[in-house]
Structures are given as C-alpha cells and as structure tokens.
Simulated scan of single mutants.
Amino acid sequence: MSKTNDNAIKISRRALITGVASTVAASAVSTSSVALNKTNDKIDLRAIAKPPKPPFTKETAMQKVRAAEDGWNSRDPYKVAMAYTPDSSWRNRAECIDGREEIIEFLTRKWNRELNYRLVKELWSFKDNRIAVRFAYEYHNDSGDWFRAYGNENWEFSANGLMHKRIASINDYDIEEHERKFRWARGRRPDDHPGLSALGL
C-alpha cells in the first residue's frame, strides 16, 4: 500500500472513537480486523466494521462470542471499544453507558478495580442480528479477596458487525484463591482450556 493510501485509511484515535470515521465508505477499507497503534495515536479504519456480520449462523455466532471473550481478556479498553458502534448503548448491572468514550472510561475503571481478570463466555442462543451469552469471570480486589462473577448478556449488532446494544446482568460470588478455575496466563484463553459447561459452571 502506498504512503498516500496508508495515510488515507488512518485517523486520530479520538475521531474514530467519536464516530467521525463511520462516514467513510466501507469500500475504502479492509474489514478483516481491527488494528490499533498506540505509539503514534492512530487507529486503522478497519475498525469501522467487525466480521462476522449478521444474520448469524451457529458457527458465526460462536465466532462472535469467542472474539468478544478474547477482546475482554486483553484488558485493553481501547481495543474492546472498537468492537462497538460509536453510539453503542449498554446497561451493565445498574449502570447505563452510552458511546465509545464512556465504554473506555467504564472499562478503565473496571480493570483498575478487578485485578487479574479472566473471562469465559459461552453462546446461549442467537437469531438474526442478536446473540445471547452466558459468562463467568474471576478477579481479585486490591485487598487480595477473590470473586467469581456470573452473568448473562443480550447483544444486538448493526449491519457492519459492530455491537450497538449490550445488556448485562451480573452477580458476584466470593471464592477462595484455591477455588479459582481460570488460571491461564494473561491474555487469550488457550484453545484446550475447558469452557463453562465443561467446568460445571
């Protein structure tokens, strides 16, 4: 790709977060992945689409669930936010969150508080542009107390595969450190690590 074209498909992080990039013609960019470069404060415009796109099959719904799990296990608020529309609307527990900027602020607070966070998601059902998911994650607070959170999410996607609505109900359960079930190294859950059903969760 020429330098001119490369510059044409990159904009400031703030412009993409606030949705300015959503006006760019989809044909001008590749939609295969999301690329974030924090060093020069640029984000690749491929973030304006997020395959697979609806309507979902069981296979593509499962891909969407795993991609979301992987993103959240990165604990990178900016990377996670790019999977949602600029005007995405959330209800997380009792908190209402609107747009990418608020998503980034929320996730930054979350992962500053929920330490050594590890998450497993599992597909529950799907239809058209909607997916229902159940999940569990483990973390500890700054006092070293461990918790496992159980939850359900309802997702609704735009035509470009970005999520524009997320509704999550979550309950926390105290556990002892020796009761932890999610012990892989930080980052993506290994492919051979059991899922929720296999773990009896």
Results as ranks from 00 to 15, higher is better:
Val133Gln: 03
Arg91Pro: 00
Ala68Ser: 06
Phe135Tyr: 15
Leu119Glu: 14
Val80Asp: 14
Arg109Leu: 03
Ile11Ala: 07
Phe106Cys: 13
Asp142Glu: 14
Trp146Pro: 03
His178Lys: 13
Ala61Pro: 02
Glu59Ser: 11
Ile175Trp: 08
Lys3Phe: 08
Ser2Tyr: 12
Trp124Pro: 00
Arg66Glu: 04
Asn40His: 10
Asn152Met: 11
Tyr150Lys: 15
Ala47Gln: 00
Met62Lys: 12
Arg166Gly: 10
Asp98His: 13
Ala8Phe: 15
Ala81Thr: 09
Ser89Gln: 11
Asn152Trp: 09
Tyr84Val: 00
Glu153His: 01
Lys64Ser: 09
Tyr173Met: 09
Arg113Met: 15
Glu153Gly: 00
Leu162Tyr: 05
Asn171Ile: 13
Ala159Phe: 06
Met163Glu: 11
Ala67Tyr: 05
Asn7Val: 13
Pro51Ala: 13
Ala47Met: 11
Glu153Phe: 02
Tyr137Ile: 09
Asp172Asn: 15
Lys64Gln: 10
Gly144Lys: 13
Ser125Phe: 02
Phe157Arg: 07
Tyr137His: 15
Pro194Ala: 09
Thr57Gly: 08
Trp146Ala: 14
Tyr78Ala: 02
Ala68Gly: 07
Gly71Trp: 04
Pro86Ser: 08
Phe147Asn: 06
Glu156Pro: 02
Glu105Gly: 15
Ile104Met: 05
Glu59Cys: 00
Leu199Gly: 06
His164Glu: 07
Gly99Leu: 07
Ala185Arg: 06
Lys38Tyr: 15
Lys10Gly: 00
Leu201Lys: 06
Asn73Cys: 02
Leu201Pro: 01
His164Ile: 01
Ser89Leu: 14
Lys127Gln: 12
Asp174Asn: 12
Tyr84Ser: 00
Ala26Phe: 01
Met163Cys: 15
Asn112Thr: 14
Ala49Ser: 11
Ser12Trp: 07
Phe147Arg: 04
Ile103Val: 13
Phe126Met: 09
Arg109Gly: 08
Gly200Ala: 15
Leu16Glu: 01
Asp6Val: 04
Arg118Pro: 07
Thr31Lys: 06
Thr60Trp: 11
Asn141Trp: 04
Asp76Arg: 00
Phe182Glu: 11
Arg13Ile: 15
Lys181Trp: 04
Asn171Leu: 12
Ala61Ser: 04
Phe182Arg: 03
Gly19Asp: 00
